[in-house]
């Protein structure tokens, strides 16, 4: 006893000041505080440490913490900028900012390129594209013959790989996306225009003036 002054830290490891995060992202301070409500919900869902572990991310996306999914893994890895196996609050806010409707298209194009460049070589290679198509088909319980998958991948490369070197570089990717803007559809989350409505408890917890 006698520890009346000992106070538990208010925020967990990885917490960053909303004022700084707002200055560096597309969000306002109040929106960052609202995002903290969402972050807390996810980051305390299994392991109560205020960090998003992969199982918690899977649980939030699929209502099942064991649902392995190549694309969710890629998103998790890209959000985990420090590559320490967890998503911290600052990483969460900065990454989500890319999905903000007001964020420049170039940032979204670059993020999608990194997402699909599975091995981080700076190119989307043919094998990577085939692996992603196969993963999507498995996820959807759709069956296509290997021949048809090959045809789809070949056809896509004919359209996207303009210098015909067997891999898609970031410039070819940008050109391809400009011609096929629907490919960026899931890089924009309209919900982010209205975060305060989704997670209104910021009003109770706000530290901003």
């Amino acid at each position: 006893m006698g520890c009346v002054l000992a106070k538990k830290a208010k925020h967990p490891v990885g917490y960053e000041d909303p004022i700084i995060l707002a200055a560096e992202t597309a969000f306002t301070v109040n929106e960052v505080e609202s995002l903290y409500e969402l972050f807390k919900k996810i980051s305390y869902s299994i392991i109560k440490d205020g960090l998003i572990h992969k199982e918690e991310f899977q649980l939030a996306l699929f209502q099942n913490s064991n649902n392995r999914n190549l694309f969710a893994d890629r998103i998790f890895d890209l959000f985990d900028v420090k590559r320490n196996g967890v998503i911290e609050f600052g990483e969460f806010v900065r990454s989500l900012s890319i999905f903000h409707p007001k964020t420049a298209q170039d940032e979204k194009i670059a993020f999608a390129f990194k997402l699909y460049d599975l091995r981080g070589t700076g190119f989307i290679e043919r094998e990577e594209l085939k692996e992603m198509v196969t993963a999507l088909l498995n996820e959807s319980d759709l069956f296509l013959s290997d021949d048809l998958i090959e045809t789809i991948v070949d056809q896509t490369f004919k359209l996207a790989d303009s210098n015909c070197d067997g891999r898609i570089d970031s410039i070819e990717w940008k050109e391809f996306v400009m011609k096929n803007p629907s490919l960026l559809k899931n890089m924009t989350l309209p919900y982010l225009m209205d975060v305060k409505m989704s997670f209104p408890s910021f009003i109770m917890n706000s530290e901003a003036d």
Binding site: A60, F71, A72, Y116, A135, E139, V153, Q155, S182, Y191
Partner: peptide, 25 residues
């Protein structure tokens, strides 16, 4: 109708890429 589907169109439909789910309910 295009003869063959664009592979990126196909993979962009993955549930794993639908972060909107995080904001629902």
């Amino acid at each position: 109708r295009p003869a063959v589907m664009n592979a990126f169109e196909l993979i962009s439909t993955s549930q794993g890429l639908n972060l909107g789910v995080l904001f629902e309910k």
